[in-house]
C-alpha cells in the first residue's frame, strides 16, 4: 500500500503529460504547430497583399508587418521556400502557385468571417478585424465556401474590401484615397482600411463606413475638412489616407446636403425617408425595412418618452418607437413633407 501510492501517482502524472493527442505534451506540440502555421500564413498574406497593391515585399516589410525580428523573418522565408510556397527572384520573395492558393484562402476566410460577424452577430465593430485575424487560420476551404453560401455569396466585406473568389486573383485596395479627391465633388466611401488598428479605431469612432456619401469641403496640408452623411468632419491627411473613395457622377453636392437624419426631426414635424445608412446592417436593417422605413415613406414625430429617449414616430399608419442611435441610421430629407 505504501509503495503502491507513489507508483500510481507517477503513472497518472505520466499519463496526464504523455497521453497521445490529449496529454499536455501532445497539446503543447499541437499549439506550437498551430502557431508556426499561423506565422507562415500571415507571411503569405503579407506577400499577396503587397503584390496586389503593386508594392514590393522585402525582408524588412515582412518583419514589420508580422512584428518579428529581421532574423526571424529570414528563417520564416527560408521555411516557406523549403515548403515550396515561395521562390526568390533577385533576392525578392515571390509566391509560388501553392503559396498563392493558401494566401488567397486566408484572405478570403478573413473577409468572409468579418462579413459573418457584421451580418449575423451582434459583435461590436471594433472586434470584427481581431476576431477574423484568429479565425482565418482555422477555417478550411470547405467551411469558407459553406459560409459564403450562407451569407449569400457576398462580394465585399464590411470594410469594402473585395472578397476573393475561391480560385481567382486578389484585387488591390480600391483607387483613390480621400486625400486625393477633388473638393466639392460627391464621392462614395468604398473602403476603410482596417490596418493599422489605431487608425481604424479612430475612423470607426468618427462613424465612417463604406457606402457613405461624402464630399471634400476644403483641403490644407494639415487637414481635410469634408462633409459625410449629414455631418462635417475634419481628418489629418495621414488618417484620410486610409479612407478610400470613388466618384459619384450621378449626384450633385446640393443633393447630398439636403439629407439629414431622423433623429434631428423636431416634434410634430414630418418628412420623407431617403434611405438607411450603410452603418445599419444585418437584422437591424431588415427590421427597419420591415417597419416601413423605405425610401419615400412619410415619417412624423408622434411623441417623446418622458425619459427623453426613445421617440415614437408615425410611419405608414402605425406608431413605432426608435432609440436615438437607430434614428441616427435613417436618412431623411431636410424638406418638410406636405402630405402623403
Amino acid at each position: 500500500m505504501n509503495h503502491a501510492l507513489p507508483v500510481v501517482a507517477s503513472l497518472i502524472a505520466m499519463a496526464v503529460v504523455f497521453w497521445p493527442r490529449y496529454g499536455l505534451w501532445a497539446r503543447w506540440q499541437l499549439a506550437q504547430e498551430l502557431a508556426r502555421r499561423i506565422r507562415r500564413e500571415d507571411a503569405l498574406k503579407h506577400l499577396i497583399k503587397s503584390e496586389a497593391n503593386g508594392r514590393v515585399a522585402t525582408l524588412n516589410s515582412l518583419a514589420g508587418a508580422l512584428q518579428i525580428s529581421a532574423a526571424n523573418a529570414a528563417s520564416l522565408l527560408e521555411e516557406l521556400e523549403e515548403r515550396e510556397l515561395v521562390t526568390f527572384e533577385d533576392g525578392r520573395p515571390l509566391l509560388r502557385p501553392a503559396g498563392r492558393a493558401m494566401a488567397l484562402h486566408v484572405v478570403r476566410a478573413h473577409r468572409l468571417w468579418e462579413s459573418y460577424l457584421a451580418e449575423q452577430t451582434g459583435v461590436p465593430e471594433l472586434e470584427w478585424h481581431p476576431r477574423a485575424e484568429e479565425r482565418e487560420h482555422l477555417l478550411t476551404p470547405e467551411e469558407a465556401d459553406a459560409l459564403a453560401a450562407r451569407l449569400g455569396h457576398p462580394t465585399r466585406d464590411p470594410h469594402g474590401d473585395v472578397i476573393p473568389p475561391p480560385h481567382g486573383d486578389l484585387e488591390g485596395d480600391p483607387g483613390q484615397s480621400l486625400n486625393t479627391a477633388a473638393p466639392q465633388t460627391p464621392v462614395l466611401i468604398t473602403h476603410i482600411e482596417d490596418e493599422p488598428d489605431t487608425v481604424y479605431r479612430q475612423l470607426v469612432a468618427l462613424g465612417l463606413r463604406p457606402g457613405m456619401r461624402a464630399f471634400v469641403i476644403e483641403k490644407t496640408p494639415s487637414r481635410v475638412r469634408f462633409w459625410v452623411d449629414g455631418n462635417e468632419q475634419i481628418l489629418a491627411p495621414i488618417l484620410a489616407q486610409n479612407v478610400f473613395v470613388r466618384p459619384l457622377p450621378e449626384f450633385r453636392t446640393e443633393d447630398l446636403v439636403e439629407e439629414e437624419f431622423l433623429s434631428g426631426l423636431k416634434p410634430q414635424a414630418r418628412t420623407r425617408v431617403i434611405g438607411l445608412s450603410p452603418a445599419c446592417r444585418g437584422q437591424e436593417r431588415r427590421r427597419l425595412l420591415d417597419l416601413g422605413f423605405v425610401p419615400g415613406t412619410v415619417v412624423e414625430v408622434e411623441m417623446i418618452s418622458p425619459a427623453g429617449d426613445p421617440t415614437a414616430y408615425r410611419v405608414r399608419g402605425t406608431i413605432v418607437a426608435l432609440r436615438r442611435e437607430q434614428a441616427n441610421l435613417i436618412r431623411v430629407s431636410s424638406k418638410e413633407a406636405s402630405d402623403r
Partner: peptide, 14 residues
Amino acid sequence: LKGEVSTFSLELPP
C-alpha cells in the same frame, strides 16, 4: 452576451 444580435423596436398599438 456580447456577441448576440441586438435590434430594438417597439410598436405602440392603438
